[in-house]
Amino acid sequence: MPHAIKLYVRYVDAINRRIGRVVMYMIFAMMGILLYSSITKTFFLPSLWTLETAQFFMVGYFILGGAYSLQLGAHVRMDLLYGSWRDSTKAWVDLFTVLFLIFYLCILLYGGYSSTEYAIQYGERSYSSWRPYMAPIKIIMCIGIFLMLLQAIAEFFKDIAKLRGSEL
């Protein structure tokens, strides 16, 4: 494989590994928010912001951790047939299916960018009683989709390398 592709795969893997390792601790922040919410609902006046903030944290956790999950091969996969295949067959199937993923992520990124642009331009807010601005979470979603797209392209290169008999 060309040196530029090796560098690309190395840097994308390193970036997504670091982001994934940091983002995985967001689950504790979300749990803290939900604990605070349950305590205030039980003993005090309930807060308006807790449920929606926990949802935003969950979106960030899910979206920003997607590329790391793809890198680790931790996504859901139908192992009924896949597990019994040879490595070369798995690489061919992965090479074929990652193209669909790249196409899907490009469309998703286009729609996310359009939605984010609208949210910034018009100051879009949630329809809840708290009414937070939607632009920050939409920006995070676009960043997560972009990172997943970069990782999917890196996985594509890794599959090509497997078929050629080398590892990246």
Rank of each mutant, 00 (worst) to 15 (best):
A135K: 01
P132W: 08
R17C: 10
Y82H: 13
I63M: 15
N16T: 09
Y82Q: 08
Y8G: 08
A91T: 02
I39G: 00
L109V: 12
A29V: 15
N16R: 04
G111T: 05
L108W: 08
F56Y: 15
A152V: 11
L109T: 02
F44P: 02
I39T: 09
S128E: 03
L51K: 02
Q151G: 07
I137R: 04
R77M: 09
G65H: 02
Y118I: 10
E155R: 12
M1P: 11
F28V: 10
R18H: 06
I107K: 10
G123N: 03
F57Y: 14
T116R: 00
I120E: 01
L81S: 06
I160H: 03
G32E: 07
R86A: 13
T89A: 14
F156Q: 03
R164F: 05
Q151A: 03
F103A: 07
L51V: 14
W49C: 06
Y82V: 04
G65F: 12
R21K: 13
K90M: 14
R125A: 13
R131P: 01
V76M: 05
A29M: 10
M1H: 15
Y104D: 09
A4D: 06
D159N: 15
S38A: 07
Y122P: 01
G144W: 10
S128I: 02
I153F: 08
L80H: 08
S129K: 08
P46C: 12
L48H: 03
H75M: 01
Y113A: 12
E155M: 09
T116D: 01
F146G: 12
M134V: 09
I39V: 15
D13P: 00
S129E: 11
L95I: 06
M26A: 11
Y122V: 11
A135N: 01
E52P: 12
Q151R: 03
A4P: 00
L95H: 04
V98W: 03
I160A: 07
A135G: 02
H75Y: 11
D94Q: 03
Y104P: 03
M31P: 00
P132V: 09
C106Y: 05
I63H: 05
S37T: 06
T89Q: 09
M26E: 03
A154C: 07
T50C: 11
H3F: 13
G65A: 09
L150I: 03
M30L: 04
F156E: 01
Y113L: 13
T40M: 14
R18S: 10
Y82W: 13
G32A: 06
Q151E: 12
I153R: 04
L163A: 08
C106K: 04
R77F: 06
D87L: 15
